[in-house]
Design a binder for these strands. Structure first.
Lengths: 91, 91
DNA sequence: ACGAATTTGTGCGTATGTATG
DNA sequence: CCATACATACGCACAAATTCG
């Protein structure tokens, strides 16, 4: 889980919220909590769960899409791609 | 207190602008002009009002944040903390 | 065919954080 | 200290795509 220091320091000390969220989502995918070929919670739901704006959600999701870990179907949802599709740029 | 002349602030020569501004903001907080738990004008608005750069605004605000008189919520604004949060280092 | 609900896409405005010259 | 640009973040509103009754 992610702990934000809401109201206090910000992304200055550590990294941006969207980067932390992307890491959290990635862990959920790699751990199997978000299963391959299955949909993850909607952006609205992720908003609620993590208490961040859609900006942050969309940045994080967009990052994983670029990594080939997630696939977006407009009007439908966002699903997990199987590992053979991943192209991890490293970090 | 900052003096005003024809709508323009008059800055003292012997003190940094940010310190004078910090003192001004502090007085506005202690006088109740900036009310507890309410947001103060945005940095951009303060820029306009005092005719200084954001550098100066941020230095002054940062000073009051360190004193526990202001709280910054990125993407939201800056608000006044109640007196019980203040930790005045002296001066 | 229709309309409602859901989900993502997009744009706007505002505010603060960081970086650079 | 000033000026500027860009990144990060929040909130809202509306559009487009899809699903379902």
């Amino acid at each position: 889980m992610i702990e934000w220091d809401r109201g206090e320091p910000v992304w200055a000390e550590d990294s941006a919220k969207w980067k932390q969220l992307a890491q959290e989502l990635r862990e959920r995918i790699e751990s199997g909590r978000y299963r391959s070929r299955k949909r993850i919670p909607s952006q609205r739901q992720l908003e609620q769960e993590f208490g961040v704006s859609r900006d942050v959600i969309r940045q994080a999701v967009g990052h994983l899409v670029a990594m080939g870990m997630l696939k977006i179907d407009p009007g439908v949802g966002t699903s997990v791609l199987p590992p053979e599709n991943w192209r991890l740029p490293e970090e």
